[in-house]
Design a protein around this nucleic acid. Structure first.
Lengths: 199, 199
DNA sequence: TTTACAACCGACCGATCGGTAGTATTTTGG
DNA sequence: CCAAAATACTACCGATCGGTCGGTTGTAAA
């Protein structure tokens, strides 16, 4: 009869994604995993404690696939971007974004977990990009990628526009390649280029 | 003693922006406008009815400033983009996005209002762009702009990263100009360019 | 000054919220 | 096979949810 902890976390993730933090109730969660509400409090001290678990699991799933550290940076980057995008497209929404908007100062643990989640995502993207461009540039390019991936979920959620996410993936990958090209050029000769504004 | 309807709508907007649809309570709203909960139901039949009012007001505020229809397209476009971005930066979050994520099939009126809200925003952006490029291209460029503007609110909400929004404004305006340039070039000679992927 | 009406309010409704206490049931180790 | 420990249960708590009802108050026309 024992229900695995991860099973509860997965169900909680769906619930948070669909209804947000405030909109998701422990009763709903209990119903989804086939337990009584009280039983949930054996594994989790309270509702807020679900948030770090949900985001940790998501981060693990997103980042822990084949390392790709030996592959060229652009291959690794595109793979990661596509992995994130595929998940967002499948589920139509982003748990992290929904929680980012939904948790406030009254739930500090959850808030910090959200911050850490997106920090990790951005760091991972930036870390790959840093192989091909200066650190600072890598971070802004990574931020921009995150912005567009998350922003695209708005169109999938509101308009069911799945093409938007595909377009974002292509342009994000393209922009990274172009930033790398510019960084290389600048490294060889001292002439800075003026094409796209980046800062 | 009469409290203006718009005053309530403005307060409701703040509440929805901060806490989302599910997280905002009629009691909180009543407290903010200095009324009792029961009095709110004189102007609004129920909580859901607040959503269209909130979004309509926001749309009016965003779109009804100086027409700019006589100005060059790029001036009008940049003005609108900056207006949207300024509002998002000020308030740190987007009501529309929070509601887009927060309303479900159980609140169909609210859901439709959200759809209409973003449709209007996208149409307005696309309408300006259509002066300088083919309709279809204008729509994807407008969608991309919306994606980035909304996505940037994630970074402002989570990291207090205000630079991200500025960066988005610059690149969005730049990309529109480049798309217009490409459209003009293609109109003069039949050679398509291969630079940025757009579809 | 009376009348009439809109605005407002206190009190209440059933339902649900997150969370707890105590008990029954299942699993597990010896 | 039996006891201890883990797990899940029933029943309940006070608070709050969206929403309603009938009465009170303020205001402005007659």
């Amino acid at each position: 009869m024992k229900v695995a902890k991860e099973e509860i976390v997965v169900a909680a993730r769906e619930l948070f994604r669909e209804r947000g933090y405030a909109g998701a109730s422990m009763q709903d969660l209990a119903d989804r995993v086939g337990l009584r509400k009280a039983s949930l409090y054996m594994r989790f001290p309270n509702k807020e404690a679900l948030v770090p678990e949900v985001l940790d699991l998501t981060l693990r799933e997103t980042l822990s696939r084949p390392d790709m550290d030996d592959r060229p940076w652009n291959v690794a980057y595109e793979a990661l971007v596509r992995a994130i995008a595929a998940d967002l497209s499948d589920r139509k929404r982003c748990v992290g974004l929904h929680l980012a908007y939904g948790v406030g100062d009254d739930t500090p643990v959850a808030k910090e977990a959200v911050r850490a989640f997106f920090q990790s995502l951005r760091d991972r993207l930036g870390g790959i990009l840093a192989r091909a461009m200066p650190r600072e540039r890598a971070e802004t390019v990574a931020s921009d990628a995150l912005i567009r991936l998350e922003g695209a979920t708005l169109l999938t959620a509101v308009f069911d526009d799945t093409e938007a996410m595909e377009r974002v993936v292509r342009t994000v990958v393209f922009d990274a390649a172009e930033a790398a090209r510019r960084a290389m050029r600048r490294a060889s000769d001292g002439k800075p280029s003026k094409s796209r504004p980046t800062a």
